[in-house]
C-alpha cells in the first residue's frame, strides 16, 4: 500500500496499521466509526478488518474479532491528520472533509458547532471516511481519443467511479502529449495532491490553482494564464457563472459532475443548465460498477435534440 495511506492508517493505532500494512493496493475506502468495526471497501464490496487482515463483513461480529476504534483514538488521529493545525483546514472541515498528504480526502461526520448561524467547526467526530486517491497513467487515453480536444468534456458518474482519476490523467495527457495549455482548478487539493512536503500526482505541464474557490481560480486563469483548457472537479449549479465565463472567453473546459445516467441527468436542473452553457462538446458517462470504464459518450448536439 502507498506510504501516504499507511501514514494515515498509523494515526489510528498500531493494531489497525499491522492489520492493513500488507493489504493489497486496491482498497478504495476505509470507513472508521466510533466503537464500530473498521470497514474497508474494495470494488465497492465491504470487508471488516481483523488482526489477521480482511474478512467478509458480518453485522453481528459474533467472534469479536473485528478491529474497532475508540472515540479518543479518532479524536487524536484527527488532530494528527490535521498536523495539529486545525486552523489550516478550517474551511475544509466546515465543508465536511479534509484533504491530507497524498491527495486522499477524509470525510468527517460529527456534531455541528455554529455561532449566529455561521458554522465554526465540527466537534465529537464519530465517523471518518478515508477515500484513497490513486494515479493511473493512461486511464484517460481512450477518453481523449474518443472525445478529442476540439471542445469541452463533461465526465459524469456516481461517486467512486474514477472521475477525479480521469481528470488527473487527462490534464497530464493534454498538457504533455498534445502540448496544450491547461489550468487545473484544484479546489480541494485532490487533483494535484501538492503539498510543501511532496510534489503530489503528475499533472504534466499544468498550471495548478490549489485551494482556490472555483470562480476565483477560473477568473485568474482566464485573465493571466491564457489556457486552452480549464480542468475542474465536481461542478455544481453554483458554478454555472464560472462555466459561462470560460465560454465567453473562448476557453474550453473539462469537468466532472455527479450524475448516474443521461435520463436522470436531464431531469437535474443544474446539470441541464450546465449543458446549455455550450461549454461542453462531449458528455461521458462512467460505469458504476467498474471503476474508470466508459459506459457512453454523447455529443452535445444529440443531447440537445433529446431535451428539445
Amino acid at each position: 500500500m502507498d506510504r501516504s495511506v499507511l501514514s494515515i492508517i498509523k494515526c489510528f493505532g498500531t493494531e489497525l496499521y499491522n492489520a492493513l500494512k500488507d493489504a493489497q493496493d486496491d482498497i478504495s475506502e476505509i470507513r472508521i466509526r466510533k466503537e464500530k468495526s473498521v470497514v474497508v471497501y474494495k470494488q465497492n464490496i465491504p470487508y471488516a478488518v481483523t488482526k489477521q487482515g480482511l474478512t467478509a463483513l458480518e453485522l453481528d461480529n459474533a467472534k469479536n474479532e473485528y478491529i474497532t476504534v475508540s472515540e479518543a483514538l479518532i479524536k487524536d488521529a484527527f488532530a494528527q491528520l490535521c498536523s495539529y493545525s486545525v486552523y489550516r483546514f478550517q474551511n475544509d472541515i466546515n465543508n465536511g472533509f479534509i484533504t491530507v498528504n497524498g491527495g486522499h480526502r477524509i470525510g468527517i461526520c460529527g456534531t455541528y458547532v455554529g455561532e449566529n448561524g455561521i458554522m465554526r467547526s465540527v466537534r465529537d467526530i464519530t465517523s471518518l471516511n478515508i477515500r484513497i486517491a490513486r494515479e493511473y497513467k493512461g486511464c484517460s487515453r481512450k477518453l481523449a481519443d474518443i472525445a478529442g480536444c476540439e471542445g469541452g468534456i463533461l465526465i459524469c458518474g456516481v461517486p467512486s467511479t474514477g472521475k477525479t482519476t480521469m481528470l488527473r490523467d487527462i490534464s497530464r495527457l493534454f498538457s504533455t502529449e498534445k502540448m496544450l495549455k491547461v489550468s487545473v482548478v484544484d479546489e480541494r487539493g485532490e487533483l494535484s495532491a501538492y503539498s510543501h512536503t511532496s510534489n503530489g500526482f503528475d499533472l504534466g505541464l499544468c498550471d495548478i490553482y490549489c485551494g482556490y474557490p472555483k470562480q476565483k481560480a477560473v477568473i485568474c486563469a482566464v485573465r493571466t494564464m491564457s489556457p486552452d483548457f480549464i480542468v475542474c472537479d465536481e461542478l455544481t449549479g453554483e458554478d454555472i457563472e464560472s462555466v459561462c465565463f470560460t465560454v465567453n472567453y473562448g476557453v474550453k473546459m473539462i469537468a466532472s459532475v455527479h450524475c448516474d445516467s443521461l435520463e436522470n441527468g436531464l431531469k437535474n436542473v443544474s446539470l441541464f443548465r450546465l449543458l446549455k452553457t455550450g461549454a461542453f462538446n462531449k458528455v461521458v458517462f462512467l460505469n458504476r460498477s467498474i471503476i474508470g470504464k466508459i459506459d457512453a459518450v454523447y455529443n452535445i448536439g444529440d443531447i440537445q435534440k433529446l431535451y428539445e
Binding site: A79, C82, Y84, S85, V86, Y87, Q90, R120, S121
Partner: peptide, 10 residues
C-alpha cells in the same frame, strides 16, 4: 491550544 483552534480563535 493553538493547534486545535480555528483561525478566529487563534
Amino acid at each position: 491550544s493553538l493547534g486545535a483552534a480555528d483561525s478566529t480563535s487563534v
